[in-house]
Simulated assay, not measured.
Amino acid sequence: MKLLSVKMNDFLYYVGVNDRDTHLFENIWPLENGVSYNSYLIVAEKTALLDTVKITKVSDFTTKLREAIGDRDLDYLVVHHMEPDHSGSIETIRELYPNVKIVGNKKTIEFLNEFYGITDNLVEIKDGESLDLGSRKLTFYTTPMVHWPESMVSYEEYSKTLFSQDAFGGFGALDGTIFDDEINLDFYHSETRRYYSNIVGKFSKSVQFALKKLSPLDIKMVCPVHGPIWRANPGKIIELYDKWSSYQVEEGVIICYGSMYGNTQTMAEVIARELAEQGIKNIKIFDVSKTHHSYILSEIWKYKAVILGSCTYNNDMFPVMSNLVNTLRMNKIENHLIGVFGSYSWSGGAVKSLKEFAEDGKYELIEPVVEAKCTAKEADIEELKKLAKNIADKLKADR
């Protein structure tokens, strides 16, 4: 009886692992609920392992793999993506199964050499080519820059399963459940959007290209390398990735502020109240010093308008606000309204920098830009209300 691996159907096993120890994904993004590293084993006339896991979890991984494969040898190791949280255990697999052939595209093979010095027992696969496993066959489709240049997916026609590497993945460990029909999708929806916006979002145009490329396939199950496996409703995760990668947004406003002594925070509260009085219901305020920018970016990805406010710190933005702005700049978000406000004491700088950011990006800057000296006076408050009303009017015009 298989106790640790999960038999998914008559030929496919789940041999992935959970990571509840790592605090920061890529040493940047908080993992309050952990993350999974998914790996799959095909057992047909030939055997094929699809991706490995982060080296820190290699013991659990190899235990599951040995249980699933039994006394069979491992014929192939398919590498869809070379990021070390998926390729980190390749050397261990080669030690356990010296005859294994590693399957990857040209760029994968370059990375194998650069990361691990691997130059032998390699099978180069090209876009559209297949790997014959006997009664099962994997066909490969390159998906460059989703989200590395060597990234590719594979499709098993008999079960109509897409092995999608980082695409369609999400944060969150799999707590005893691995399939979409076993889990609370509300939680995974939020963590999947946070994963998309922070890890994949910059490459949204490449995601759109990949979605079009894969659209002719009849997909009954999606098996990513992070997060749940989509067997009950694979169209749901594909639909979400299409929505996020085409910058489809909902009516709402995200207000982010950086404040040392509360004056800029007060300005944010004035804007929020006026938005509410103008009939906007989805309003969220974030103190950038308290909320990690990965959560803020996820919410900005969801809603149409973002308003950024910063106190001046050494003639520029508050440093934590600057971190958020750099994240937004890196991810090249489109189809958003943006408002800017802030405060200063003896010399300005923050609002100027925020305005330059808004004008340089693919945002629609909504006037007025509001800057208060020390604290917001009556005239400043009126300008803040005007900013809120103008954004609300834009949002309501799209209803």
Rank of each mutant, 00 (worst) to 15 (best):
E191D: 09
R231S: 15
D242V: 01
P224R: 02
L214P: 15
G235T: 05
L240A: 15
R194A: 15
D181S: 07
Y247E: 13
A210W: 01
V207R: 07
V249P: 08
R194Y: 04
G235H: 08
T192S: 13
C223P: 08
I199H: 09
S204K: 04
G252D: 00
W244N: 05
L185C: 00
K213Q: 08
G252I: 11
K243S: 04
K236N: 07
P228I: 11
K205N: 15
V200F: 03
G227N: 03
M221R: 12
G227Y: 12
S204W: 07
R194S: 13
P234A: 01
I254S: 04
L240F: 14
L217I: 04
N184M: 00
K236A: 14
L240G: 00
S246R: 12
G235P: 11
G227H: 11
E191H: 12
P224I: 04
G227D: 09
D242C: 03
D242T: 13
E239F: 00
K236E: 13
D218R: 15
E239S: 15
L214W: 04
K212A: 10
Y247G: 08
H226F: 05
E239H: 09
W230G: 07
I199G: 04
Q248R: 15
V207M: 06
I237Y: 05
Q248G: 05
K243W: 07
I254H: 00
W230N: 08
E251N: 14
A210T: 05
W244K: 03
L185S: 05
I229L: 11
F203Y: 11
N184A: 05
A232Q: 09
I219P: 06
V253S: 02
H189C: 10
G201R: 08
K213Y: 03
L185A: 01
K213L: 03
S190C: 01
F209P: 00
K212T: 08
